[in-house]
């Protein structure tokens, strides 16, 4: 820890790049933030997939070949895990960001979180039924 004196007060400096190792809650936070790397890369993959569709069946086939590679499989597995972590961490804090007041009481956080989970599951089933 870098430290310095200032006007008779002692300042404990926060380590810039390793501060989050101090507390488990910071590590959980960083894990949540790092999901954006996977979701970002995955979205770029979707952008390329759409471009390949626009270019025709052969181009799309080439894209699929890359997806079939061990790296493609590994990437999809890790993105799936990251996406699941993102979803749960996102839904779990919705009552804090969007509390709903019903007259003289707040709607229970559990109901708000639960509603998000239900919508999530419904959309997932819908896409699965339509997509598989």
């Amino acid at each position: 820890m870098g430290k310095k004196m200032n006007k008779n007060s002692y300042i404990r400096e926060v380590p810039r790049a390793s501060w989050f190792l101090k507390q488990p809650r910071y590590i959980r936070y960083m894990a949540r933030e790092v999901t954006s790397l996977f979701i970002g890369a995955y979205t770029l993959m979707l952008v390329i997939a759409i471009k390949r569709v626009a270019e025709g069946p052969d181009a799309f086939q080439n894209f699929l070949e890359i997806l079939y590679s061990p790296l493609g499989i590994l990437f999809n597995i890790s993105t799936l895990l990251a996406a699941l972590y993102h979803s749960t961490s996102w839904f779990n804090v919705t009552p804090q960001a969007m509390p709903i007041q019903w007259g003289e009481e707040f709607v229970s956080g559990r109901i708000i979180v639960g509603a998000h989970y239900i919508i999530w599951i419904a959309i997932s089933i819908l896409i699965l039924v339509f997509g598989v």
Binding site: I39, Y42, M45, L46, L64, L67, Y68, G72, I73, N76, I77, T79, L80, A83, L84, H86, S87, W90, F91, H116, I119, W120, I123, S124, I127, L128, G131, V132
Partner: peptide, 20 residues
């Protein structure tokens, strides 16, 4: 954040199936 939370897991599942 909301859109990806709702849709991305099932999408990645489908592309994982494709990759396999």
């Amino acid at each position: 954040g909301m859109a990806t939370a709702l849709v991305t897991p099932v999408l990645t599942f489908l592309t994982l199936l494709t990759a396999l």
